[in-house]
Design a protein around this nucleic acid. Sequence first.
DNA 1: CTGTTAGCGCCTTCAT
DNA 2: ATGAAGGCGCTAACAG
Lengths: 336, 336
Amino acid sequence: MATMVDVARVAGVSTSTVSHVLNGTRNVEPATRRRVLAAIEDTGYRQDTLARAMRRARTDSIGLIVSDAGEPAFAEMVHGVEQAAAENDLTLLLANSAEDAQREQRAITTLMNRRVDGLILACSASTDISAIGALGDERAPVVLLDRLHRTLPFDQVGADNRESMRALVNHLVEQGHTGFVVVAGDTRVPTLAERLEGFHDGLRDGHLHSGSQVVCEGVDASVMFAQVAETVGRGAASAVIACSTPLATLALNALQSVNRSVPGEVAFATFDGFRNPDLFSPRVTTVRQPAYDMGMTAVQLLLARLSAPESSPRTVRLHQSIELRDSTEAFTFTKP
Amino acid sequence: MATMVDVARVAGVSTSTVSHVLNGTRNVEPATRRRVLAAIEDTGYRQDTLARAMRRARTDSIGLIVSDAGEPAFAEMVHGVEQAAAENDLTLLLANSAEDAQREQRAITTLMNRRVDGLILACSASTDISAIGALGDERAPVVLLDRLHRTLPFDQVGADNRESMRALVNHLVEQGHTGFVVVAGDTRVPTLAERLEGFHDGLRDGHLHSGSQVVCEGVDASVMFAQVAETVGRGAASAVIACSTPLATLALNALQSVNRSVPGEVAFATFDGFRNPDLFSPRVTTVRQPAYDMGMTAVQLLLARLSAPESSPRTVRLHQSIELRDSTEAFTFTKP
DNA sequence: CTGTTAGCGCCTTCAT
DNA sequence: ATGAAGGCGCTAACAG
């Protein structure tokens, strides 16, 4: 591999001139510049990013850690981050944490060691908040994406989960539903906790007793599956709300297992939703995150932070849209 | 940030000893080692990956480029690669090319510049093969994943696309189908080209004239959409086969647009398929790639290559499984 | 068993 | 307008 020294020798100049030609960092006579450029061509020289990063403060790269870039919601966020990164000539280094605190920590270390200029992080469910808080001491700033932690002093961008859930519940209550099953999942995940709070807001709005509602919470899929099946099976609820895509899969399977048709016998809605909502049967009412925009916003927050390191942290909430489809619409519910 | 010099000073030893303690690369007296470890603790020292990589030949990291880590098939390959990488203490740097040759080239340059020890690549559709061939001159070896190019002298791992399609067609022919629409898509993608070849194999097996079959080929979704709708609309085909997930979406939408029910009026099958096949209506017959294993295999090929740089390139084909579901079973009606 | 030292490839003052 | 030279943090001979 050719180095700058080779180029300098071939061009008959000093390495310093080569460097300046490369970076346009000071004037160099057109003739000399041409010689240098030719020498670069001849030698097949390519800049060594590593050596360069070692001398400069920055690497022009950022890191992104999500739990699973294959989940539709995260996939879109990744695209948003990629787009914004490309627009700003930043290289993106991507890693999955698989909701595992340990893998997440490894990824953080890896990326920080690779000297990313900043890190965008959607914390895993099992993440220890204080460990993340320690990231405040790193040289690279951190932006929290999707999974917000009020207590952490970082820039953050997420969706208005609580308000969206509240609106969704209001809608269902208006349709006459009074018994709900909410598949909340792992409420250590702030996104899911917020959605659950919104559910209770909605209940209050509708003057419904929260005591008679069923909330499936936790990490054990089979337990939640059983809860959904049992509750719906004995007719104790007329509407099921899933708080994420995997939870929706779980819930729909549970409904199938007790032969309850949607929306004929039970109304169903989910957050985040599936990749091809119009091909599902039934077409599922979905609260959709502005995931792409969240990704782009995260990068912008990062850039803003880099250019103003001392400004106080900002939290941005983007609006979710409720896409009403057959699963909550195509039947008329009669009060018991 | 503390450096090795700081640690050495605090521990009262030389940097070389610190280095050897860190890397376990030569014996050091237990007492000294303890002092060094303590000093590391005290100073909060962390190794600088970049400086380290500059001295060593390797970075213990590999790169992976796919067109879209959000596509179900690629998402699984990514997981496989992650798993294998983690097992071998390799850091994974992931990038999406979005089927764009230019973005792909940028990603390659970025990763090579970051001195990955190896690169796993699922070429984009628009990739210029000769440009990829030039990667043979890089210091880091390349493994082709999923999208194989016979002419390139790299290790490769993919699925037995041709054989699977052939078997699928045989199955449909046995059921009595004689008129097919194949949504082949962009056959510059080798995976898709192979599947199309398999289709013709199947036709020959069934002694069917290929002249009366419809192959939708190309990059323009609206053109293919129209072809599917038109062909099926006039009853010129009884079975539709999509060669990838996005093409399946397209085809199913086209069928909806002409009000043809699956499988009542038309049989349907796809490759790769959807994330939650049992929640779709109808449940779709799917040829599924062993995507996870393909990812793991890619890493293994890379490691094998690194330890035996001169061995001749290997191509591995893994078997796909055909998951038969309602969409090709003419007598089953599951529409709610 | 431990220390000294010479770079890895590049950027960047400081001179000229 | 250009060169010379030091050093970023680390590893690996080479010496003791």
